[in-house]
């Protein structure tokens, strides 16, 4: 059975200057589990991708909020939910294909691929005009 041991929520404006704040805040919260350097770096990278997606895609047209919930679960598991109320993704499967991007030039199209490969489980829900929710889970080593 999944038990919530600890939880932290924040909402922040989708400004690119908040990308580093979001990953630093989440990393600080998770530090109570004494993660390895690699685990922490994986989580920060996945968070950075999800938050960047909110800024570059979800709120491309209008500024809005990003809602983040981080849970520490039993057995050293972490779940992170990153939600926006932006434009939504018409075709989630297509958006998750590596190298696919609608942002052009300087975006590599690897956001979801990084989230998928750096976490243990990734779920994406999206509705056009209503927003996107990304949830990922990471199992930390027991030390």
């Amino acid at each position: 059975m999944i038990k919530i041991i600890n939880q932290f929520k924040m909402e922040l404006l989708a400004r690119s200057s908040n990308e580093s704040f979001a990953r630093a805040a989440i990393a600080a919260f998770i530090s109570q589990l004494d993660p390895t350097v690699e685990e922490l770096s994986d989580i920060k990278t996945a968070v950075s991708e999800a938050v960047t997606n909110c800024i570059v895609h979800a709120y491309k047209e209008q500024l809005g909020y990003i809602y983040i919930t981080v849970r520490i679960l039993n057995d050293n598991k972490v779940s992170i939910k990153i939600k926006d109320k932006g434009c939504g993704i018409p075709d989630v499967e297509k958006a998750m294909e590596p190298l696919y991007t609608t942002a052009g030039g300087e975006r590599a199209g690897l956001g979801f691929a990084v989230m998928e490969s750096f976490t243990d489980k990734l779920t994406v829900h999206s509705a056009v005009g209503r927003g996107t929710t990304v949830i990922f889970h990471k199992q930390l080593q027991t030390r």
Partner: peptide
Amino acid sequence: TFMDSSGIGLVMG
């Protein structure tokens, strides 16, 4: 000290 896929975009560009 930290890089996400934006760094990949930077190198590709």
